[in-house]
Amino acid sequence: MKFSTSNFELTANDLSAVRGERLLFKQLNFSLKNGTILYLQGANGTGKTTLLRMLCGLSKPYSGVINWCGNNINELAEDFHQNILYIGHLPSIKEDLTALENLQFSLALTGDSFDFAHACEVLKLLGLGKALHLPTRVLSQGQKRRVALARLWLQNLPLWILDEPFTALDVAATELLKQKIEHFANAGGVVVMTTHQEVLINAPNFVQLRLEDLDKPNHNLKN
């Protein structure tokens, strides 16, 4: 898996977000090129998830634009969606389906074909070898998260947007995921992630962004 051959760039210009009457963040600017990991930090309620959802195009910024390779992501729509792998705080795992069935569907949504043997291998690597054919309802929280994260091994998409990927994972799984993210960044992928855990990631372009608490109602909303 190599992405360095083609150049990707995700840029945010002057982003701001408003929730209800509260300004979450303003004048956010960044540019992420191949191999960059953007690590979002901030207390609860500072807009980390909101920012991630904006970067996917799920919610619209109050002001500012987000560009993918120079084009507005809202105009690209499906052309942009085929590049992102988004794992939100909800695992998007259907409890009535097995781990394999869930993965097959998640992959299909981004147009990726499903390699049964490869998927079994990845799930075994993630310690779910015994749970391949069980409905995910019987799995623990951490195991469900691993099923959702298995997509990172199975799909070949250049932009990962991960909301709290380390939540509910044990030490071994955290280590596996950390290595996977490092490997992906070294191969030229772009990662935007949030986490409350202190995870040391070794990557050439590791950028930290701290969202500050701007708890001032109606703060410059008119501008």
Partner: peptide, 22 residues
Amino acid sequence: ASDHADGTLEQIMLSNQPTVLI
């Protein structure tokens, strides 16, 4: 409702196929 509750709906919106068809 259940797709909304477990986050699948977000993935559907982010599909590379038009949401209307899905």
